[in-house]
Simulated assay, not measured.
Amino acid sequence: MAALHPSRVRPYVERFVLDGQSVRLTQAALETLAVVAYKQPVTRSRISAIRGVNCDGVIRTLTSRGLVEECGTEPESGAFLYRTTTLFLEKLGMNSVNDLPPLAPFLPDDVEEVADASSS
C-alpha cells in the first residue's frame, strides 16, 4: 500500500479536529447548558422540569461536545448528576462557574416553585 501524502490527508484531518468547534448550539442546547451551569450538579429530570421539556437528547449532544459531563449519582434516586466541564469554562473565558453573572435579575420570582411542582 502506498503512503498517503500529507497534502491529501490534511483536509480530512482538519475536518475531524475542527468538527463541532464552529457549529453553533441550538436554542434548546443553550438553555440546557445554562440550567446545568447554574444548578450543577443536577439530574436530567431536574433539568427537564426546569425547562418544561425532555432534555435527554440535548444532554447527549452537550456531553458529546465535551461541554457537560457526568459527575456522580444522586443518593436518593441513583440518577446521574451532570456538571459543566473545563472546556465549557475555556470557551466562555472563565476560571470557575463562580464567574457566571448573577441569574436572579432575569428570572421570575417563582421559578423554583414552578420547577419543584413539575418534578413532583
Rank of each mutant, 00 (worst) to 15 (best):
P75A: 14
P101W: 04
S64Y: 02
D110I: 00
A3Q: 14
G52N: 06
T85P: 00
E90P: 07
E69H: 10
C71K: 10
I47E: 03
F106A: 14
A34C: 12
V68M: 05
G78H: 00
V58P: 03
T43V: 06
L87H: 08
F16H: 12
E76Q: 15
A104N: 12
Q21V: 08
L4A: 15
I59F: 00
V114D: 00
T73N: 15
L100Q: 01
E76H: 13
S118E: 11
Q40W: 02
M94G: 09
F16M: 12
S119D: 14
E90G: 10
D19N: 12
T85W: 00
E69D: 13
F88Y: 00
V17Y: 01
D116E: 14
G78R: 07
L92V: 07
L33W: 05
E31K: 11
V23Y: 01
T43C: 03
K39H: 12
I59L: 13
R8F: 02
P105T: 05
I47G: 08
M1N: 13
A104R: 15
L67T: 01
N54H: 05
V58N: 02
G20Y: 06
E14M: 12
P41R: 01
G57K: 08
P108C: 09
L103S: 08
G78E: 05
E113K: 06
A104Y: 04
A34D: 02
N95Q: 10
G78C: 09
K39T: 14
S118P: 11
D116I: 06
P6Q: 02
V13W: 08
A28T: 05
F88E: 06
T73M: 14
V36A: 05
V35F: 02
P6R: 05
P105F: 01
T86D: 15
I50A: 12
G52S: 01
E14S: 15
E70C: 15
F106I: 09
T43P: 04
A79I: 02
L67N: 01
G52T: 08
K39N: 15
A104G: 10
R60T: 13
R8D: 15
R8L: 13
T86N: 14
Q21S: 13
L103V: 13
E69T: 13
S96N: 05
E74Q: 15
C71M: 04
N98R: 15
S77M: 02
A28N: 01
V111K: 09
G52I: 02
H5S: 12
G57D: 04
D99M: 02
V53F: 08
E14W: 03
L81N: 07
L25W: 01
Q40T: 00
L87Y: 04
R83Q: 12
E113I: 03
C71I: 06
T32N: 03
D19A: 15
V114L: 09
M1F: 10
V111A: 12
A28G: 06
Q40G: 11
R15P: 04
R15H: 09
S96F: 01
S96L: 01
E31C: 12
S64M: 10
A34Y: 05
P105S: 07
V111P: 04
Y82T: 09
D110Y: 00
S22I: 07
G57I: 02
I50H: 04
V111N: 03
R46F: 01
S22L: 11
G78V: 09
M1A: 14
F80T: 14
V17L: 12
S48E: 05
V9M: 11
D19T: 10
H5M: 11
G78Q: 08
R15I: 02
V111F: 09
Y38K: 06
